[in-house]
Simulated assay, not measured.
Amino acid sequence: MKKALVSVCLSFSLLTLSPATFAHYVRAERPVVPGESLSAWFRAYDDLHLGAAGLKREVFEYALRGLQKIDAKPIISIVDMSQPSTKKRLYVIDLANKKLLFHTYVSHGRNTGELMASSFSNVNSSNKSSLGFYKTLDTYMGKHGLSLKLKGLEKGFNDNAYDRAIVLHGADYVCEDFVRRTGRLGRSQGCPAVPNAMSKQIITAVKGGSCLFVYYPNQDYLKKSTYLATL
């Protein structure tokens, strides 16, 4: 009886914590996988110098908050669309082994913006990127070569991704030469396209059940995403 009462009191106290305090509690206490704690995953931000690589701590913590709620491998791919397309804004992180596997360019949809992303959609034929959390599926050979199917997990934000054929693939317009010629990266029909030279390695590393998080500071998304809710 006493244990049950303590549990109820603890649960109630968590409900009254501020988001920052709750995040601290989760980082310090909540186990994620056997032998690994979420606090160790959060330390990866400093250990891997992700700030120096251009990724804001807030975005990394959003990604981990969502990852806790997804049955996925401990590999997180973060596309930070708050950065211009001329920046290397894709981060593929092996949390279990504390390694930054890839840090490179990634495109956004042609109707999402030019240099900067600004407009997002879940609608077919919109040629826009979709925000939120995805789970990687299986691979196939398409017009861009080896490509990776994606399942959008967030209703209203990216759950039409599979039907829209939004996939991870390589593209010749995702390269520094294109940036030098045009002042921005090439754009896709909504897919997160990566450099051709790295696409096979990236796809092989993340296929089959890892998590992809496409971020932009869109207030509607940040308020409504169930994956970013602290409780």
Rank of each mutant, 00 (worst) to 15 (best):
M1P: 14
A4S: 14
S7D: 13
V8D: 08
S13H: 04
L14F: 05
P19K: 04
A23Y: 01
V26W: 00
R27I: 00
P34V: 09
S37C: 09
L38C: 01
S39I: 09
A40G: 08
D46G: 10
V59E: 10
F60H: 02
E61G: 00
K69V: 03
A72E: 01
I76Y: 01
D80M: 03
D80L: 03
M81V: 00
S82H: 12
S85H: 08
T86H: 09
K88I: 07
R89E: 12
L90N: 10
L95R: 09
H103N: 15
H103S: 10
Y105P: 03
E114I: 01
N122V: 09
N124M: 12
L131T: 09
F133Y: 11
F133V: 02
Y134E: 05
Y134K: 01
K135S: 13
T136P: 07
T136C: 04
L137A: 05
D138T: 09
Y140L: 01
M141A: 06
G142P: 08
G142D: 02
G145K: 04
L148G: 06
K155V: 14
F157T: 03
A165L: 14
L168N: 01
H169R: 04
H169V: 06
Y173W: 09
V179T: 08
R181A: 14
R184M: 11
P192H: 08
N196V: 12
I202D: 10
T204G: 10
V206C: 06
S225W: 11
T226Y: 03
L228Y: 10
A229S: 14
